[in-house]
Simulated assay, not measured.
Amino acid sequence: MSPRRSVAEALGTRASILDRSVAIASMEGLEGLTIGRLAIELSMSKSGVLGHFGTKEALQLAVLDRAGEIFRAEVWEPALPAAPGLARLRVLCEAWISYLERRVFPGGCFFVAAAHEFDGRPGAVRDAVESRFGVWRARLAKEARRAVDAGELPAGTDPGRLVFELMGMAMALNHTIQLHGDPHAATYAREAVNARLTPPSA
């Protein structure tokens, strides 16, 4: 076996472990991940699974990274072609709603679930979850600030408050879909976002 093939196979195995881990953690939380369960489901030895990460915490952090890649592909990247400011903010919100509506992760928003699981537990995993939320909030605030500067939103709009409201709408949508299965939830969310992002004079 050539070294190149060996590396490719190792990367493929690691990717398979992460994809299965994301699916499990989405439904049962990051603490629901166990090396033994992954080994059984992937027909691997425990040492074979552990060898790719070293510790359970390292596995959890790698799973967060993989979930972050999926979120970026689903929500951030579709908005990049849009003009900075209000147009991009609208595309971001629509992609965000669609991501939740289509249940890209079977357990709903991966990061909302992770935040609920770790927000009161200090450590590297909590810090990683908080950091990802910080990056997302900063991206939304940047586009909101651009929209205000361009006159696309009222001059008195506080980007931080707007982001707070948009985050609340998304979390309400996630909750209403996952817990209540309300078929109207995405429609309500779109209407709420549209109302918030439409200037009074429009």
Rank of each mutant, 00 (worst) to 15 (best):
L173P: 01
G134K: 13
S6H: 12
M169N: 06
G181V: 08
A202N: 06
R103K: 13
L64I: 14
A83K: 12
A150P: 02
I40C: 00
R102V: 03
L153E: 11
R20F: 00
F110M: 10
L61S: 12
L80I: 15
S201L: 07
A172T: 13
A128R: 14
G168D: 09
P200K: 03
E165L: 09
A186K: 01
V91A: 02
F105A: 05
A83R: 14
L153W: 06
R88I: 01
P154C: 05
W136E: 12
L80Q: 14
T176S: 14
V193F: 10
L59V: 10
R126C: 04
R190N: 10
S45N: 11
C109Q: 08
T55A: 09
L197D: 08
S45C: 10
C93H: 01
L153A: 07
D149S: 13
E94Q: 14
S47W: 03
V129P: 06
S6N: 10
A186F: 10
A195D: 07
I177P: 05
R146G: 15
V63A: 02
F110C: 05
K142W: 04
L197R: 09
S47N: 09
G123I: 05
A195M: 09
F164M: 11
E31Y: 11
L140F: 11
V91M: 01
H184M: 13
G156F: 13
V75R: 01
E74F: 02
R190D: 11
A114T: 09
P84D: 00
S6I: 09
Y188D: 06
T157N: 07
P122I: 02
G68A: 12
L153M: 12
P159F: 00
T176P: 01
D65C: 13
F53N: 01
V148M: 04
V22W: 12
T34I: 14
L11F: 03
A39H: 05
A150R: 04
L89M: 09
S43T: 09
G134S: 05
S2G: 15
G68D: 15
A185E: 11
S16N: 07
L166A: 08
E77L: 11
H180M: 13
M171Y: 08
Y188H: 14
F111Y: 13
G68F: 13
R4G: 08
L11W: 02
G48V: 08
F111Q: 06
D119T: 07
V112F: 15
L80M: 15
A62I: 05
A25V: 08
